[in-house]
């Protein structure tokens, strides 16, 4: 019953990889086995990889991208949120919690990219799970996060992606293209270059 940080087990990465259908480029990285608690002292491959210390990532080519579900929620600020209203923007949706160590590791990267790419029409949103609003807001102050987060204590946003590309661990990051279709899922902490490359390829894609 002990709540441990949620990470994909190596077996799950394999299962995810198997599930990748034709048209889906699956990048299961050499550092994937860092997923288990026992092996988590492995820093993963920190070199020039597409994504950094993440456990797996999926990229969907234009034409094979599943339509993102209608996601609505309330932001930590109290305002309401609708994913559909973001059509026309590339949306980066990051699932996080203030207690989660890899989330804290990737937070500065997300914060910087959100600012850098705003001018290119990229909108970052967080989905705060298993947390309390006070802790979440303190986290945002620490890492100087400028983008809003959904207060999702019942995991209803993660559940909304059940039929498409559900996030399988915390952190997970979804990239949704301008047409509202899911272009990528990164499970585990993102790297600066990796996530930027992902977003760039979505930005330069046809949609």
């Amino acid at each position: 019953m002990i709540r441990l940080p949620r990470f994909v087990r190596p077996g799950r990465v394999a299962a995810v990889a198997m599930a990748a259908a034709a048209g889906v480029v699956t990048l299961t990285l050499a550092g994937c086995d860092g997923g288990s608690i026992a092996n988590s002292s492995d820093p993963g491959n920190s070199g020039n990889s597409f994504v950094g210390a993440s456990y797996s990532s999926k990229f969907f080519q234009v034409g094979s991208r599943p339509l993102a579900p209608a996601v609505t929620g309330t932001l930590l600020t109290g305002q309401s949120f609708s994913l559909r209203a973001q059509r026309g923007h590339v949306v980066v949706l990051n699932f996080w919690g203030s207690w989660c160590a890899p989330c804290r590791q990737e937070a500065p990267i997300l914060g910087t990219l959100a600012t850098d790419l705003r001018g290119k029409g990229v909108r970052f949103f967080g989905d705060n799970v298993l947390d309390s609003p006070d802790s979440a807001e303190a986290f945002e102050r620490t890492f100087n996060i400028g983008y809003p987060s959904i207060n999702d204590q019942g995991e209803q946003v993660a559940l909304a992606f059940h039929d498409t590309v559900p996030p399988s661990a915390i952190p997970s990051t979804l990239v949704i293209d301008r047409a509202g279709r899911i272009a990528a899922l990164v499970v585990g902490a993102v790297s600066f270059n990796g996530l930027k490359a992902l977003i760039d390829s979505v930005l330069t894609g046809k949609s």
């Binding site: 019953m1 002990i2 709540r3 441990l4 949620r6 994909v8 087990r9 077996g11 799950r12 299962a15 995810v16 198997m18 599930a19 699932f95 799970v129 298993l130 204590q153 019942g154 995991e155 209803q156 993660a158 559940l159 059940h162 039929d163 498409t164 559900p166 996030p167 399988s168 661990a169 915390i170 997970s172």
Partner: peptide
Amino acid sequence: EGFANTPTALDVFHPGRLVTASDLQPFS
């Protein structure tokens, strides 16, 4: 408090060999 039956919400999750996150029954 509440939770949804999705891997990110579960404290310990042991899926079968062929189970993916989409296979979990979507109850809350």
